[in-house]
Every structure is written in C-alpha cells, then in structure tokens.
Simulated scan of single mutants.
Amino acid sequence: MLPLAAALLGLALGPWLARATVRLAQRDAAAVPARTRVALTTLLTGASLAGAAALTGARPLLAGVLWLAAAAVVLAGVDLAVHRLPDVVTLPALAVLTAAVAVDALVEGTGRRALAGLLLAAAAFAVGVVLRLLAPAGLGFGDVKLLAPLGLLLGWWGGGLLLLTGVLLGLLAGAAGSLVLLATRRAGWRTAVPFGPPLLVGAAVALALAGPL
C-alpha cells in the first residue's frame, strides 16, 4: 500500500512540479507548461515516488527520499532545458534529506549509516569542487552541489561502493546520451551536455540494484 500511496502523491504533485520546472527554466513566474510536459512530469513523479517508497519502506528516511525524488524530476527538467540546476531546489532537498537521516538515526538506531552518509556527502562535494576547478567546462557548480544529497543518500544506503557505482552509472548514462545525440545529429562534439540528469539516473539505478532496505 505504501508505494501506491506514494504513486498517488506523485500524480497529485505532477502538474505543480511541471509548472515549477518551466518557471524555473524560463525564470518567469507566469510561464505555463505544455500538456505533454505536464503528462510526462506527472507520470515520472508518480513512478519515482512509488519506487522510492518501495525501496525505503515505512521509516523516517522515507520523507527525505520522497522529497529528493520529487526534486530530481524538477532538476532534470530544468537542466535539460537550460543546463542549470537551481539552488532553490537542490539545497532544500539536501536539508530535508539530512533532517530525515538524523531522525532515522534517532528512531531506528542508524547512527553509523548517518555518519557514513554525511562523510561521503562531504567527500563527494569536495571531489566535485576539485573537478570543477580542474575542468570548469565539463562540470557545472550546480552538478557539484547535486553530488552532496546524492552522496548522502547513496553513502547512507550502501557506503562508498554504492556511491562509486552510482557515479559510474551516471557517467555511462551521460556517455550513452551523448552518443545518441551525436548519432541523431542533435548535437556536435563541442556541444555542452547537461550532467545533472545522468547523475540522477545513475543514483536511481544504483539504489534499484542495491535493493530494498
């Protein structure tokens, strides 16, 4: 019943998230999404929240995972449209997930998991900063900030190995997407490709492979 309830919540949130996506992308508070975007966003949100509930189960961490899943839908939509990951979405997701991890540690006794998640979140962010400084054209600072909540969740869930798996899968997803764009002549070798959606896909697939808690 929990995944079904989460799916219904996602379906209810979908139209609102679609509006938020286009308004953040266009920086226009009056922008209205197309019907196709509303439908796709609604279906993706419902599926994402249902999957999050199925993997996490009924525990305090679920609130943070659901929030991050909904935020991921918006972040992916904005990044695909304008190559930008808004702080107004990323930072609250990190804050809510951190709070959920803390409450879960108190209620479920997952203090070691919480510490591992926080340390790996900091490590992922630090590595991202270094990569950003070394290759600013390849990694945006929005991507660097996104590594923090992904590092926290993946680190909490399965430690450093799962985090590395998620990042690797994200790199593979990004490479595959770039090849498709090149093959369909929708991009050239010098075309900038958003890195946020592949990171999110890699994290989701890594969690799915790790299985339910």
Rank of each mutant, 00 (worst) to 15 (best):
A137M: 05
L119C: 13
G77T: 04
W16R: 05
A124G: 12
A137C: 02
V65T: 06
A123Q: 07
A99H: 12
S48A: 15
D104F: 02
R186Y: 09
V73F: 10
A137V: 12
G170K: 09
V96D: 10
P212Y: 08
T90Y: 02
L213N: 15
P136E: 07
A30E: 05
P198F: 11
L119S: 11
A124Y: 06
R113L: 15
L200M: 11
L8G: 05
G64V: 12
R84W: 14
P197E: 14
G174E: 02
L182P: 09
A76Y: 01
A58D: 14
R59I: 00
A210D: 11
L118N: 12
A25T: 08
G128I: 08
A102W: 10
A210C: 08
L62R: 03
G174R: 07
V201Y: 03
L97F: 14
A175F: 08
T98I: 09
L169R: 10
L68C: 07
V74H: 07
A71C: 11
T98H: 14
A148G: 07
D143C: 03
G166Y: 01
A76Q: 13
G142H: 08
E108A: 14
T21N: 11
V127Q: 05
P212R: 10
V129C: 05
V193F: 15
A31F: 06
A122H: 08
A7N: 07
R132P: 02
L168A: 15
L43F: 00
G202D: 15
L44R: 00
D28L: 04
G211M: 13
V38G: 03
A63T: 12
L139E: 01
A173Q: 01
